[in-house]
Amino acid sequence: MTDSLDFLTAGNEFLVYDKVPSIYTTHRYAPFALTDALIKEAGEKNQPILHFWTTEPYVILGMMDTKLPFLTEALESLSSFSYPYLVRNSGGLAVISDEGVLNFTLIFPEKDERLSINEGYDRMHQIIQKAFKDFPEQIDAYEIPDSYCPGDYDLSINGRKIAGIAQRRLNGGIAIMIYLSVNGDQKKRAEIIKTLYDHGLKGTETKWHFPTVKPEVMTTLEHALAHSFTVSDVKKRIKSLFLKASIELKEATFPPSVQSDYMEGLEKMTKRNKKMLPQLPLSAGG
């Protein structure tokens, strides 16, 4: 592997949204509203963007999870873990986000080039592979069926999942999003989602497929590579790839267009969650 990434052109500039003002971080729905605002910004300004974020402990549901036949009981079961929850504005299934999970989004304008779904996933896979090329372990991309939110581009080391990738398109831009379990208690994370499905299904068969979550098929980057990592360490590794490829990384500002689209996205997320989730105490926004 070389230090350059074949889809990056030397001399290009990426805006980096990393340390963002508290207005964009304090609300539970903030990362999702901001992501949509940044996809629109990338498309309108023809500007590629990197977005890094972490959260307090949350269960992030996919829209399919709202089809669980015993959804209220499933959500009530989360109270024993004291994890608030929300439903994101995209498909897929439930994942955990907390201080040991890095959420990282590559956002590309699609004015001149529309990426295929697989090419978008491949780009993220390449970045994560190359960020850790100094370790002998291979980071593979294939489905880990008994993980939570399984998909064709699950990232794994020695057969145990460390990350999942998703995509979202809006207004001339595409976001390739990854959650990467850097450190922390991955067994507990998986047990929380297993509990969600155990209570939400109660053995019932549905026309939707929900995974039989087995905590042993998932792990953290730290455990898989037998090396101590912080979320900041991983961000530095990812940024260094762009710099080595002669890509300028520019700390982003928040123009009125982003602010306006963010507020619109926040309102949409609020309406979505009120509509799709039973209004239990843990589902209140904020």
Rank of each mutant, 00 (worst) to 15 (best):
C149V: 12
P150V: 13
D98C: 02
E99K: 13
I117D: 03
P150C: 11
P150K: 11
N103W: 03
M124C: 14
S97W: 01
F132K: 07
E99M: 08
Y121S: 06
H125Q: 11
D146T: 05
Y85V: 11
I107V: 14
Q129L: 03
T105G: 05
K130Q: 15
P150Y: 11
N118S: 13
Y148R: 13
E137V: 03
Y85C: 14
S82T: 03
L86H: 01
Q129H: 05
K111H: 15
V101W: 07
L106Y: 02
V101A: 04
G92L: 11
F81R: 00
V87P: 10
E137I: 00
P145R: 05
R88N: 08
F132D: 14
G92I: 09
S116Q: 02
K111M: 08
H125T: 15
D146M: 06
Q126C: 09
Y142P: 01
Y83E: 01
Y85P: 00
D140L: 14
Y142C: 12
L102D: 13
G91E: 12
R114L: 04
L93F: 13
T105N: 13
Y142G: 06
L115A: 08
I96K: 05
F104P: 12
L102R: 12
P145E: 06
K130I: 00
S147Y: 10
T105H: 04
C149M: 13
I117H: 05
D146I: 00
R114D: 03
L86S: 00
G92H: 10
K133N: 12
P136S: 09
P109H: 09
L93M: 15
S82Y: 01
L115R: 04
Y142S: 15
I139T: 14
K130P: 02
D112Q: 03
N103A: 08
A94G: 05
S147G: 13
N118K: 10
N118C: 02
H125G: 02
G91S: 14
R88A: 10
V101S: 10
G91R: 12
P136G: 04
D112E: 15
I128R: 01
D146S: 14
H125S: 06
P84E: 02
E119T: 15
P145M: 06
F135V: 09
E113C: 01
F81T: 02
G100E: 05
F81K: 00
V95T: 15
R123E: 02
V101Q: 13
A131P: 08
A131R: 02
P150E: 12
D134Y: 07
G91N: 10
L106A: 01
Y121P: 05
V95R: 03
Y121K: 04
T105Q: 14
F108N: 01
Q129P: 03
I139F: 11
V95H: 02
Q138F: 12
I117F: 11
R88M: 06
F104D: 11
N118M: 03
P109Y: 03
T105E: 13
I128M: 07
R114N: 03
I96E: 06
I127C: 10
D122V: 04
G120I: 06
I117Q: 05
G100I: 08
G92T: 06
T105R: 07
A131T: 05
E143V: 12
S80F: 00
K130R: 15
V87S: 10
I128Q: 05
G92Y: 10
N89Y: 07
S97V: 06
R88W: 07
E143C: 10
P109E: 07
G120R: 08
K130F: 01
G100Q: 06
G92E: 13
D140A: 15
